[in-house]
Design a protein around this nucleic acid. Sequence first.
DNA 1: CGCACCATTGAGAATTATCAATCCTTGTGG
DNA 2: CCACAAGGATTGATAATTCTCAATGGTGCG
Lengths: 255, 255
Amino acid sequence: MSDMPSCQFESRPRRIVIGSSGVQTDFCSTCSVRPNSICSVIEPGDISRLSEVAVEAIVPPGRGFIEEGAPATDFFNVTSGTVKLFKALPDGRRQITGFAAPGHFLGLAVSDSYAFGAEAVDTVRVCRFSREKMTELLDDFPKLERRLLEEASNELVAAQNQMLLLGRKTARERVASFLLDQMQTGLLPGQDGNGGRLHLPMTRGDIADYLGLTIETVSRTLSWMRAQGMIEVGKGYAITIVSIAKLEVLAAGNG
Amino acid sequence: MSDMPSCQFESRPRRIVIGSSGVQTDFCSTCSVRPNSICSVIEPGDISRLSEVAVEAIVPPGRGFIEEGAPATDFFNVTSGTVKLFKALPDGRRQITGFAAPGHFLGLAVSDSYAFGAEAVDTVRVCRFSREKMTELLDDFPKLERRLLEEASNELVAAQNQMLLLGRKTARERVASFLLDQMQTGLLPGQDGNGGRLHLPMTRGDIADYLGLTIETVSRTLSWMRAQGMIEVGKGYAITIVSIAKLEVLAAGNG
DNA sequence: CGCACCATTGAGAATTATCAATCCTTGTGG
DNA sequence: CCACAAGGATTGATAATTCTCAATGGTGCG
């Protein structure tokens, strides 16, 4: 496929917010994704502990920041943008195992090396924690551990759903399932009820690698869905869901 | 496929070992899989706590004991035999998401209903914990929570590997990967080095549902591997690995 | 002994992949 | 501002892997 991107950050700015008194402020306390992330279990009085160990980083589109097989030195929390997680075979075949949206925690692994790679789909901001700092936090905040277990359990459920999709669903069923899933995260503002405009930040190639298909099959399937009046394919990364009901019939298992 | 088995236990014997003094003994302390299970983090002095909340059950081959979508009332620990975990589509298509060997913990899910079904492959023994009793244990033994997180992380890694297999590997690669995986758990005693006799407790149908293939393709692929001198297919559930090297070349990605 | 279930093998069909050409969009530089 | 280059997307024609349908053979249990 494409050339393997390097595993370096574009920049690694320690984003320190200076308050009126000139003292470092807890940027975690103003973090917009904290309510949806594991950080929400840290009490307001302890948030400074978070800010001390977290480092903000900005990852430009297409840049990888976790390399499969590399030493697992850091954990990440996505604060904005979309990240693709993937595994690859020696000959280049790639399977995207998931897309991480803001609030998602990355790096769950007992091994000392990453079991997957991670790459920014669009411009991504992440909070980075070193492995040892994270361990300290876990020791000091038992709630954090329970929250991580929740997070892991949720990912496990998602992984099981994806295995069902990859192992047993047809191309049409896969794409339908994908579009419905994306309505959880990709819905444009003001959209809700029986339809909705979606912003899909990933390319057809990414979708294909996520669904275990080829680019061409994804494209053809979307065209077929458009012909069926299920969706409208806008330019860029926009897709409009015209009939959720029809997609749900497909996704449930009528290829 | 086959008719859906009921979600009942064959029997639910509270296995209470009566010591010489006539007092109930901790059967957990003699449990052969404890070193490999989450129970290993409970200190010897606290093992009685385990025995109090655990109930042993025997599940006959083919019997289901977790029904997908049913209220998640219990957790399980496999103590002997092999369990298949699966998800199904309305029309009967089934994806086996994993095989659980002795020591495996079942039921990780935040939801109040099971996200997957479980069924005994051969005769299975499990330890059952009620959800509330398990919660109490988690509160009293922080180490247990950390161990569960480890368990979940390991399953996540396995799930990611399986997604790569299902989404991007050819039939031959899938079967090769499967056979190599099974050498971790299914090796018959006395086997080790460059080959080994495997006991696969599951049917071809189970293997097919695990690998996202059909029974026929699994069978044909095994026949092809035999013709290539990679394996020997014995009668019953025996398979002999003749050349690990050839299988590894296949599994790594040469279809 | 016969039935039921599982496994193997064959022939043909179907879904999806591969190869290839064209179009569209976007960004860049003259 | 326009032309061009580059990457992504779409569509078409063909190929290949895998599935489906079907028949046969083996194994174990009642």
